[in-house]
Design a protein around this nucleic acid. Structure first.
Lengths: 195, 195
DNA sequence: CTTGACTTCCTATCGTCGATAGGTGATTCT
DNA sequence: AGAATCACCTATCGACGATAGGAAGTCAAG
């Protein structure tokens, strides 16, 4: 059986990551402890170091996994043909993804783990997800970096306010479409003006 | 000497808080340790419990102190008479305050400490600061809660993006005035429309 | 089928963390 | 002067992340 060792190892890693998500959802991403995680998968804490070199390495694996989930979600989304509607749809998917799992969002989108920086490889996945949204913006006529930055920051601001102050509600996120219209209108007419 | 004990005690508390800010600026608010803080003020760690019942109590004192700094800053600001210019000035002061000390902002504006919730009393200071900004919005003709929420979320989103991705720069915050104009224009014309 | 390498887990231990218990002088008040 | 309070200490606890070193189990080459 060639590679059966590697297969078993990868399955174990996947089960550890799955258990880590569960614990993170219970206690927050910051409340995740290696002792508790090890017990959850039937091990002692030092044994986890067989699979992850450090707690930060585990966070990095979770970071990569979370971003892969986001990419899959975007892949599975059917977008309207009309560019602006497609942009709204993409941002709405992003918002929904962020709000459905606060622990995951803390890791992926907020600076919640003190010394954690994702590896170049994992960060690439995050950039890829962001690029998808930026592409939708370009299709909708938002091309300047400043306008893209504004759209990203506004969306993130709505998500953050929603998660912090009214988790599960829509007091902030319900304004997303209106703000997108405002920003896209301004960005596109501004471009016409300066040409 | 009536109250000399209380005076000495309050001075000590102030010096501890000052040292705590310094350490927080060095290692981030999450990297603040009671052992290190105690050494910094010439004590052993358990002695700090003479002044703060727990680490969260210390965070609460820092939270209150930070919000008092913000209120003082707003008090010391001279606002233009024109309402919208005054709003822009207020938000700019807020942005500047947030960007000049990331450790303080992590504590005051982000959910960076796992289990920390400010006491009702300390939270009141934060609400007071927010109320000042909301008042400026009302003066500028932004009265509906949804529009206020949007302005707050957008400002916070710009600050967050700026702190996370380009600390010290202005790639995001330079768009503040334009976004304020967009939102205020929309909010005020929308109100006229519906009346 | 056995031997040797590799895999996968363990116990024991370290240093740091926040927190508590209990004690000791110094200061303050009656 | 004596009692109460204050302001600090040492010693210790349990939980944490991390490392050292060892013992079974798995697997493949001779």
């Amino acid at each position: 059986m060639a590679g059966s060792v590697a297969l078993r190892r990868e399955a174990k890693i996947a089960s550890i990551i799955e258990a880590a998500w569960e614990l993170a959802r219970e206690h927050g991403i910051g409340g995740l402890s290696l002792h508790a995680l090890a017990r959850e998968v039937g091990m002692r804490q030092p044994s986890l170091y067989e699979y992850f070199a450090s707690k930060h390495a585990l966070f990095d694996a979770l970071f990569a996994a979370g971003n892969r989930q986001l990419l899959e979600r975007l892949d599975a989304t059917t977008f309207p043909h009309e560019p602006r509607a497609a942009l709204k749809r993409g941002l709405a998917v992003f918002v929904e993804f962020a709000l459905e799992d606060s622990a995951r969002s803390e890791l992926l989108f907020q600076r919640h783990i003190p010394g954690f920086e994702p590896t170049r490889e994992s960060y690439g996945l995050a950039e890829e997800a962001l690029d998808r949204l930026v592409e939708l913006m370009h299709d909708a006529g938002v091309n300047e970096q400043g306008d893209v930055d504004c759209l990203v920051a506004v969306t993130a601001g709505l998500i953050d306010a929603q998660m912090s102050n009214d988790p599960g509600g829509d007091r902030w996120t319900r304004h997303l479409d209106r703000l997108v219209d405002l920003l896209v209108d301004d960005a596109t007419t501004k471009r016409r003006r300066s040409r």
